[in-house]
């Protein structure tokens, strides 16, 4: 159930950092990515959201030329992939499916090694850039240790440092907060914000809704290999529906009143609270004012113990889009 909003069509006109058309990646008969049309505007912090196994990492692998597309077009930074891999990748920093490092080298040793693989990187500034990158992710204290002795969180930071070895136009971060403690998560968030402020497009994949909500300007939602929604975060959020929640022992009667007012009764999320009545406000904009609703309820003898008008949470929105729940834990 795709909902192309008017603004999304407008987004095609603006400059895109990542763009795919009908991207399909099959492994044997199974389509891991099944015809997606991504549009990531330049300068955006794009949250690539979806449950585990929905095809996020596979999409990223294809975007970065690690895997070849079965069919479809991919453009990254205005160049066709994978033909222009060699000229595009130096401008792309990436963290794909967790960090991968030589356990027998130190953190800086690893970064030097990976930087030397880049023909465009100047050897003269290598040492300085490695030191700077380590500093940005707060790993300077562990510079002397072999990666073997790093914790998962430290490795994740080192992976981020690798993505930041050079000024990048695009950062692709696959689950960047995996293995980080809350403090680390906050740091990553602020790092992403500061990078975005510097003009870098950031493409963050996550299965954590809260993470995406907190740092992204744009969102794309993957479900079972399909892109079920994408667009600016605010737009998606407003596309959701407002709900009226009435706390009452007379749920049935309340529902009747709400229906009479033109609201559509909705199921209570967990069915365990018979003292609650829920109804969706059409379009989320028009509809009776809250005080009118409360007045009507009371006039009808509904014992109103609590009343609220809830903006649709993104979670509800995504549950309705993907049919699955998300881990909301940040």
């Amino acid at each position: 159930m795709k909902e192309p909003s008017p603004t999304q069509r407008g987004a095609a006109a603006e400059e895109l950092a990542v763009e795919t058309h009908g991207l399909v990646k099959r492994f044997g008969q199974r389509a891991a990515v099944d015809g997606i049309d991504l549009a990531v505007p330049r300068g955006a912090v794009f949250g690539f959201l979806g449950p585990n196994g929905s095809g996020k990492t596979t999409t990223i692998r294809v975007l970065l030329g690690l895997a070849s597309a079965t069919s479809g077009d991919v453009r990254v930074l205005d160049q066709s992939m994978p033909a222009a891999l060699a000229s595009v990748l130096p401008d792309v920093g990436a963290l794909v499916e967790g960090p991968g490092f030589y356990p027998f080298l130190t953190g800086p040793g690893n970064l030097m090694r990976l930087d030397s693989a880049d023909r465009h990187a100047l050897p003269a500034t290598r040492r300085q850039r490695v030191a700077d990158a380590l500093d940005r992710v707060g790993l300077t204290h562990a510079a002397g240790k072999k990666v073997r002795a790093y914790s998962l969180g430290m490795k994740q930071r080192l992976g981020l440092a690798n993505a930041l070895l050079r000024p990048r136009e695009l950062l692709v971060l696959d689950e960047p907060t995996n293995g980080l403690d809350p403090q680390g998560t906050r740091e990553v968030r602020s790092l992403v914000r500061s990078l975005a402020a510097g003009g870098t497009t950031v493409f963050v994949s996550s299965h954590l809704l809260a993470e995406v909500e907190q740092m992204c300007t744009h969102v794309g939602v993957m479900s079972a290999g399909r892109l079920v929604a994408q667009g600016p975060l605010a737009e998606l959020r407003s596309a959701g529906q407002r709900q009226v929640v009435v706390e009452t022992p007379d749920a049935e009667r309340a529902n009747g009143v709400l229906a009479r007012l033109g609201l559509v009764p909705a199921a209570t999320p967990d069915g365990e609270r018979p003292i609650e009545a829920r109804a969706v406000m059409n379009g989320g904009l028009a509809g009776p004012a809250p005080e009118v609703i409360v007045a009507a309820l009371v006039a009808d003898g509904v014992r109103v113990r609590g009343f609220a008008v809830e903006d649709a949470s993104l979670e509800d929105r995504f549950v309705s889009l993907t049919g699955e729940g998300f881990d909301v834990v940040g």
Binding site: P90, R113, D118, R119, H120, R129
Partner: peptide
């Protein structure tokens, strides 16, 4: 961004052969 000491080479500029990868390979090995 923090103190960046290098600029990416202009597009079209042929990068160095990149012997440093070989050097790095040998040193890692």
């Amino acid at each position: 961004m923090s103190a960046d000491t290098s600029k990416p080479l202009a597009p079209g500029v042929r990068p160095a052969v990149g012997w440093s990868l070989l050097g790095s390979e040998l040193s890692v090995l």
